[in-house]
């Protein structure tokens, strides 16, 4: 059971960590200074969540690894994040399409985890769910603004959403281990979350005067460490400093 819990915590923590790192790439490049700050705020919230989940993962593993060791000294195939969060930022519309999907998913997930049978998970979820409610709201707002905006912004939002739709099955993927944790009341049953998330997504897309993209061929594998090439490059940048100077302090 401990190994299952460890794997589950990696999934939760890695999602937040990798998306947080992705969003950091916008720092200094966003369309306006206000948007720059708002993206950095999302990133920092996510990295904070990752610290809590990975810290707990390290304790469960009890092999002497803390959150930093797990973040900076694992290779791509040991990461358990979903494929959606490792995708490149693209333009602002694509970033917001990705954020909208992920935050909508994460909100439903954390909402459920607030009543997890594991007290630590419930505590982290209760803290994070408030942050994520804001993320989901902000991203939905941008989906509507861009989708129901100019011909240019609309086209870009449609492209952004289309690009994300390949990763939906991966986002909600569960294996036997996670199902066992869900049966024990520790993990959330993602299959049950999916209609909730889909309903919310449909509602926002309608408001954005966009139609729900059809489900294209689905890529999966993130939860078992089969990632796209994008993850290795992201990790190379994120991990270079702690690996070049192990144990360095400010």
């Amino acid at each position: 059971m401990n190994d299952l819990l460890f794997q589950y915590l990696l999934r939760l923590g890695d999602d937040s960590l990798i998306l947080g790192q992705r969003l950091c790439e916008w720092c200094g490049h966003a369309p306006t200074i206000e948007v720059d700050l708002s993206l950095s705020n999302l990133a920092l919230d996510l990295i904070g969540q990752a610290t809590l989940f990975l810290g707990y993962a390290g304790e469960v593993e009890s092999g002497g690894r803390d959150a930093d060791a797990l973040a900076f000294h694992r290779d791509a195939e040991d990461f358990r994040n979903c494929l959606l969060v490792e995708q490149p930022n693209g333009d602002f519309a694509r970033t917001m399409a990705r954020q909208f999907l992920f935050s909508s998913y994460q909100l439903a997930l954390l909402d459920r985890l607030c009543s997890s049978a594991d007290g630590r998970i419930a505590e982290i979820a209760a803290k994070a769910v408030k942050e994520v409610r804001y993320h989901a709201d902000l991203a939905a707002d941008w989906v509507v603004r861009l989708g129901d905006g100019t011909a240019e912004s609309r086209g870009r939002m449609i492209e952004g959403l289309d690009d994300c739709w390949r990763f939906l099955d991966d986002l909600f993927a569960m294996d036997d281990g996670e199902r066992a944790l869900a049966a024990a009341g520790i993990a959330a049953d993602k299959a049950a979350l999916r209609p909730l998330v889909q309903g919310r997504v449909e509602q926002v897309l309608r408001q954005a005067t966009l139609s729900m993209p059809g489900l294209p061929w689905q890529v999966t594998g993130g939860r078992t460490g089969r990632h796209s090439e994008h993850l290795s490059r992201l990790l190379a940048e994120m991990q270079v400093l702690p690996r070049a100077h192990p144990g360095a302090r400010w």
């Binding site: 306006t32 206000e34 948007v35 700050l37 708002s38 705020n41 902000l138 707002d141 603004r145």
Partner: peptide, 20 residues
């Protein structure tokens, strides 16, 4: 002060800029 296209986004930008 912040730049924003409308009041709703002005509030968001204000939140992200001045209450973090």
């Amino acid at each position: 002060s912040v730049h924003a296209p409308d009041a709703e986004l002005a509030l968001r930008h204000a939140r992200d800029t001045y209450t973090r």
